[in-house]
Amino acid sequence: MLFPSLLSMATVALAAAETMTLSEVLNANNKTLSTLNSLLASQPALSAALASASPITILAPSNDAFSKLLSTSAGMAVSKDPSMVAALLEYHVLNGTFNSSAFTTTAQFVPSLLTNQTFTNVTGGQVVMGMLSGKTVKLMSGLKETSTVTTADVMFTGGVIHIIDTVLTIPLSPANSAVDSELTALAGALTTTSLVSAVDNLKDVTIFAPSNAAFQAIGSATSSLSTTQLSSILEYHIINGTVGYSTLLMTGLANETFPSLMGTELMVEATDKKVFVNSAQVTITDIIVANGVMHVINNVLNPSNSTAKANTAATTQAVAFAGASSASTVPFTSGISATTTAPSASTMTAGAEKAYGTMGVAAMIGMGVIAGAF
């Protein structure tokens, strides 16, 4: 019978693929992966490490994916810096074997081999988010840039390769991520208080980042804040030592209190697929940053009003600063401008995900330093 014969042939082919080494599989797919092969050849230490690593998952950008990157001056600058090339390649290797069937409609945050502290400060390695969208695996990296798996489950002796259509973006520092996510009021407030380096160099953080509209809503109060008061307010938006991705906020961290960087506790509450922090709702989830994760919120939190709670049934929340009113302009934004408008600037409800367009390549020129500068 023809069908059993074909099935037998497919089984033999799969078994053969699983016994091929990484280099053999990469060479066999050189027509699609020649740029990746060339970059790996320029990194002999990494290539040798990958040859014996197991179990791993390689997210392999196609030649077309690298062409999109290398067609820009920023991409060419990346390709000429060996340390950045090494970091970029390491970020495309996940710890563990994740076949396409391992991904579901629930987001997974999988550690990569990128542990170089020049680029990341997350225990266990910087993560890549993966989830199923229809029948396709989508991957999210820095600035919520999305890559699509175009060819899945290319097996080799040490694990599996998935070919992707867009080069992953190494997550930027919180300050740089804020700028490119159109959180320019937060970026400006960090600059005003000289907290940029301090926040960017923290390890394992969860940052609740007020939107520009949230800062504008308390605009009348911002001009009277001292630098010390503004610093305390900003530090109140940071949980230090815990990286709370959206899946954890909805489950393990939900309905608990956590000490903020300034000391006063924050209350995280999850209800009806929404996440609230004190009197604010999370509106954009999972902007992966160099030292953890950032979630956008629609209210500025007030450490002097730490018992303020959100009305979970309401679409908007009362400001946490008594007597404050909206300003005609967004405070702290003077002199702050983005190099690109990233997908992370798009409004999205907590827990929801969508596919985005191509990489904000211009952002990659500054991705090599955790502590950004303005």
Rank of each mutant, 00 (worst) to 15 (best):
A217L: 08
V167H: 01
A221I: 08
V179T: 05
L248M: 12
K203I: 04
S226Y: 07
T242W: 05
T257A: 14
P171S: 10
N201Y: 11
G241K: 07
L172M: 07
L234A: 09
I239P: 00
L261R: 09
H237Q: 13
S224V: 09
L248Q: 13
S223K: 14
F215I: 13
Q216M: 12
S260W: 06
D200M: 05
D180Y: 09
T242K: 13
T166Y: 07
L253F: 15
P259R: 10
L261Q: 09
M250K: 13
A178Y: 01
L225I: 03
L248N: 11
L202Q: 12
Y236I: 08
E182K: 14
S197R: 14
S246D: 10
L249D: 02
S260T: 10
A189N: 03
S194V: 10
A213I: 07
N255T: 05
S260I: 10
L172P: 03
G219R: 06
L183W: 05
Y236E: 10
Y245F: 11
A221G: 11
L230F: 04
I170A: 05
T228K: 08
S224A: 14
A175R: 06
L186M: 12
T206N: 07
T191V: 12
T166Q: 15
A178K: 01
L172A: 09
L168P: 02
A175S: 12
V196T: 09
T184I: 08
L249Q: 03
A213K: 03
T193F: 07
T257I: 11
M250P: 03
F258N: 03
P210Y: 02
E256W: 02
